[in-house]
Amino acid sequence: MTALPAHTEKKLGLVIDLDTCVGCHACAVNCKEWNTGGDLAPLSDTDPYGADVSGTWLNRIHSFEVDDGDDARLVHFPKSCLHCDDAPCVTVCPTGASLKRTEDGIVLVDEDKCMGCGLCAWACPYGAREMDAVAGVMKKCTLCVDRIYSDELPEEDRIPACVRTCPSSARHFGDLADPTSDVSLLVAARGGYDLMPEQETRPVNKYLPPRKRVSLPTPAARGDSGPPLTGFWKWLDGALEKVG
């Protein structure tokens, strides 16, 4: 049913630290690698070795330039499904393919019911859903539902592929309904926020803002100051002086 649950027992989601993300795209690559080979239809690429390569991705990394007058910096910005509490992509679905799970709040697509109308992708303000050109069904982040509940994977792998692979620990996974969970504490400590709150989607995923940077003092140019030259260096300095 495409009605949203009034309450979910858990709110599994991601916390993404924009302060530590280095923009390496490893999370997107590992996401693609894992999710192209699971139970669902593969994430297709069209013209993969040609000039006009395009493909389905569940996670993409945008980079923004932020200049507030005091400081100018580059912020790498990974974006995937936010598993919203009021997910507009779920309620618009005419076939019942789009759903939000009551037990953990994960927003999923039942591909056997998806007719590929694309309305859910229109309804999502964040562009978190992409139509697969080959499979003809809507694709989105599953929060690696086939990893996190796996009995076969080693314990440390039972987290989403993007979180597992992030080399700078910029991605965190956990239950955001539990105020004592690591992710909830992190959100509270760092002022985690929602994307486009005015769209009233109540995202579960949170973003941690870049920390304020402390500027280092500009080092003085070497050579013009410092201790006087001696020996060979004093001779070379004098010789160069004569030449030049």
Binding site: T95, D112, K113, C114, M115, C117, G118, M131, G136, V137
Partner: peptide, 10 residues
Amino acid sequence: LKSPARARHA
């Protein structure tokens, strides 16, 4: 529709 055969679910 990309998968019109499933339109009956609509």
